[in-house]
């Protein structure tokens, strides 16, 4: 059985759907940092069959909106003195700014640097779709 120590002060991103851990690891650019980071993949979960976990021995700013886009099942635990200080559930964000591009090739956000792509959640049932604030086209977010 693989054993990984608890962290003293930092962040644990828990309940990540298996396979998404590496995507989040890359999005947070954790491969380039100089503090301890652990990516655990396919570990046993009480609720799920398996899950991924990321442990970060540092209190970095985590973009919960971005995490919600990748995997709305995630829980973010803030650790202080080796105990969980707070727990945050991420969710599919209702509004997203600047995290992905509009799929419409004629949309102004694909041409003008002042135009930061902004989206409103349009459909969160089967396929997550966002409506562009500028051209109103629907874009599905795929990491």
């Amino acid at each position: 059985m693989l054993k990984v120590d608890s962290i003293n002060c930092g962040i644990v991103i828990d309940h990540i759907t298996p396979g998404n851990g590496i995507k989040i690891f890359e999005k947070l650019k954790l491969g380039n940092v100089d503090y301890p980071v652990v990516l655990l993949m396919n570990v046993h979960s009480a609720n799920k069959v398996k899950k991924d976990i990321i442990k970060i021995e540092n209190k970095i700013d985590i973009d919960l909106t971005m995490l919600g886009l990748i995997d709305p099942e995630i829980t973010v635990n803030i650790i202080e003195n080796a105990i969980i200080e707070s727990k945050q559930k991420v969710k599919i964000p209702n509004e997203v700014t600047g995290l992905f591009r509009c799929k419409n090739p004629r949309c102004v956000t694909n041409f003008d640097e002042y135009a930061v792509p902004k989206f409103r959640l349009s459909n969160s049932n089967k396929k997550i779709l966002y409506r562009c604030n500028y051209c109103e086209e629907l874009t599905s977010y795929v990491i």
Partner: peptide, 10 residues
């Protein structure tokens, strides 16, 4: 008038 969609909104 602009050929890019959303330009007047911007």
């Amino acid at each position: 008038r602009h050929p890019k969609e959303g330009a007047p909104k911007l």
